[in-house]
Amino acid sequence: MTAAGPVALDVRGLSKHFGGVRAVDDCSFIAPKGKVTGLIGPNGAGKSTAIDLISGFKLPDAGSVVFEGKALQGLSPHRISRLGLIRTFQTPREWRELTVLENVVLARWDESRETFWRGVLGLRQAGREATLSELSEARGILQEFGLIALRNERAGNLSGGQKRLVEFARIRMAKPQLVILDEPMGGVNPVLGERMALAIEGFITAGTSVIVVEHNLPFIERVTDHVVVMSQGSVIANGPFESLRSNQAVVDAYLGEMPTYEQPGA
């Protein structure tokens, strides 16, 4: 681990076995604060399971996860989310029947405004200002992502790419300290790649560190500062993307098929 400077996420010795299969096996890595960390590896390397373990959706058999100095083991997903670590999923998980605007507004969790009693008895005037400022913030974010015209649309009606953008907009609204993006380019027209890359830069500007899991290596090369390579449940290499090209273990894991950004498919 050569990462210097402040650390957003410190994963150590994370393990998870399913029956006899070691899905994640003694996995350790660091995601630096204010940077984009790529998490790559061949299919079945355990990347998605690792995300589930970090975000509390699955319980690890062993290992520790420290996020901004706080230990996350044993916390349930909503607690981890409330601490400022938000993850996305391989498929976009929009709230289908809700509108795009509702999807974005609801991304911000605010317990004091969400209780039942506030809903029933809360003075209309008191809640109103907060609601209005939240709405205009959400509108601003949608505008930035080019979704403003769709704000009243049912989220389930959007295209795959638009759903990904809504997900990004939700994260901007939630303002976490760290976001883990699970295959953000999955099912997205590659033409949108640059737009997604800019959105990821936008997260960093807004103070959100990023971990991105992706199969699209040109995209990883474009957006990341630092890459962690997993294979068979463990981390086999890490460093800047450039340095990995010559790493024999990485090349072996990918069976030597590592395309470059400049010459895809060469």
Partner: peptide, 21 residues
């Protein structure tokens, strides 16, 4: 209310609801 909206988010996708707190 926000409470009602949050309930609907559970109906639509509870994993996403948990991911957002």
């Amino acid at each position: 209310s926000r409470f009602g909206l949050a309930l609907r988010s559970l109906r639509e996708d509870e994993r996403a609801a948990a991911a957002f707190g």
